[in-house]
Amino acid sequence: MLNALEVFTTVVVGLMVGVELSVAFVMNRIFDALPEDGGQLARSHGGRMLGALMPFWYIGSVLLGAAWAVAGWSRPGAGFVVIAVALLIVSVIMSVLLLVPINNRGKTWTPENRPADWKEQTKRWDSYHYVRVAVIVAAFTFLVIALV
């Protein structure tokens, strides 16, 4: 049963990393290249769509990692799982304190109601997101190390 939990946790976190890497390095670049207001509208839609899903994914990843750490405490690699869980907790804290406030504003923006500094806020979100991606990549790496 522990083996299934280890694999499932690693896959869930790995998929989350893949989505967030895609947002950071593919989707946002595509959105920014859209003509006129297309990029801002796409980001608003993405903020609504992913903003509804990602809290469950992030918290679920922390809970799965914590379950793995507790269940596998006496096994080799448990320390790596604890480090991964700590990094996932950091990513949740970063999300709540830094990214979610910007996302909550951005997901309501339209070309008619967006603030004058919307591009600066978007760039700030992107900067925080790059750091968060690095944190969850590190967490995923520690889970993989613990798995092998």
Rank of each mutant, 00 (worst) to 15 (best):
N28P: 00
F80L: 12
A69F: 00
I136C: 00
P115F: 10
R124V: 02
H129P: 06
E20K: 01
S61Q: 01
W57N: 05
R29Y: 06
F56T: 11
L21F: 03
G106Q: 15
W57A: 15
A33V: 01
S22Y: 09
A86H: 02
L5Q: 03
G14D: 12
P55L: 13
W125N: 09
V137F: 04
A4H: 09
S127Y: 08
F56L: 15
R114F: 08
I93T: 13
P101N: 13
L53G: 05
V131W: 14
F8C: 10
V23P: 03
L41C: 03
M1P: 11
V26G: 10
A4F: 13
F140T: 00
E20N: 14
Q121F: 01
T141M: 09
Y128M: 10
V11M: 11
N3W: 03
V17N: 04
I93F: 12
S44P: 02
V81H: 03
V23T: 12
R29S: 12
W68F: 10
N113K: 08
G14S: 08
E6Q: 14
A138L: 15
V92Q: 11
I83F: 07
L87S: 02
N104A: 06
N113E: 06
F25V: 11
M27E: 04
S61N: 10
P35F: 08
A71S: 11
V11G: 05
S44Q: 06
K107I: 03
F56S: 13
W73H: 12
M27L: 15
V12L: 12
S44L: 04
T110H: 02
F56V: 14
L88A: 01
L50W: 00
H45V: 13
P101I: 09
V100T: 13
G14R: 09
D37Q: 11
I59K: 00
L99A: 12
R29G: 08
F25H: 14
D37L: 04
S91M: 05
N103W: 07
P115I: 07
R132Y: 06
A52L: 12
L99H: 13
W73Y: 09
L21N: 07
A86N: 02
V12R: 02
Q40L: 13
V96S: 10
W68L: 05
A52H: 11
Y130V: 14
P101M: 13
V135Y: 00
G60D: 09
V92G: 03
S22I: 05
V82P: 01
G47E: 05
S74P: 01
L53K: 07
D37H: 13
S44F: 06
V23H: 07
V148G: 14
I83T: 14
T10G: 13
Q40P: 00
A24H: 09
A146P: 03
K123G: 04
V96Q: 12
R132H: 08
K123V: 06
R124A: 11
L15E: 04
W109G: 03
E120G: 09
N113L: 09
G46T: 10
A24M: 10
L63A: 14
L5P: 01
W118F: 15
R132M: 10
S95G: 14
F25N: 14
H45N: 11
A134W: 04
I145N: 08
I136M: 08
A67M: 11
K123A: 14
E120C: 00
A69C: 05
D117M: 05
N113Q: 04
F142K: 03
